[in-house]
Amino acid sequence: MTAVPLKVTDLTAGYGPTRIISNVSFEVPAGRKLVVLGRNGVGKTTLLSAVMGLCTQHGGTIALGEEALSGRKTSRRAMMGLGYVPQTRDIFQSLTVEQNLSTGIRAGSDARLDEAYELFPRLAERRRNLGSQLSGGEQQMLSIARTLLGHPSILLLDEPLEGLAPIICDELMSTITELASSRAISIILVEQQIERALVFGEDAIIIERGQIAWEGAVSALRADRDLIETYIGVGIH
């Protein structure tokens, strides 16, 4: 698939009647890398869930290219080009690495398992291991690789580095960065590790209490460290 822009307009969403995010609007142009920042519990994961159709959408619109996503089932959104890697990883525990990857290949697709192994050589070494036998980092690699085998036009990554050792974080971010430059794909990255996110992203939005508090280029955010201090409460070096 080729990269397609994602446009979110006045999105209000939550769980059941509870509204977590309200009137959120942003756009990810085709092939761009957007990082979503904010403190814990401000609605970053809910935002991705709403885009994916996993929570209740109370208002607003979501469009992938010319296609409206609102009201469509999660599986349909995935088929239309959304690739979602959730915070919980959620690989299939009873399947081997190879079998997990096979489930990511759609009928009629020209995707090959080798694509995943080229991206994450460690998975090739563990191809016969069950999902339940993998480390956290390997599970994350598997989760990302399986999503990529669906050839999404936009990849939604929800805190992929959470709970991983620094060396694995480096490895993973380096692969994601390489992926973004080598494939026609847009990426939205939600991440708590601010420094790594700012190195990766081109555009950024900061969410505060379910609304966008700031949006702009990452370069502008890096230049104004007070902004990060104000909205996220951490200093960057």
Binding site: M52, L54, K73, T74, S75, R76, A78, M79, Y84, P86, D90, I91, F92, Q93, S94, L95, Q99, N100, S102, T103, G104, R106, R146, T147, G150
Partner: peptide, 19 residues
């Protein structure tokens, strides 16, 4: 394999485009 995936985690199966 996908049926086994659905047994493990139906929501995850939906997320990767499985009806």
């Amino acid at each position: 394999l996908m049926c086994r995936g659905i047994r493990d985690d139906a929501l995850r199966a939906r997320m990767i485009g499985t009806a």
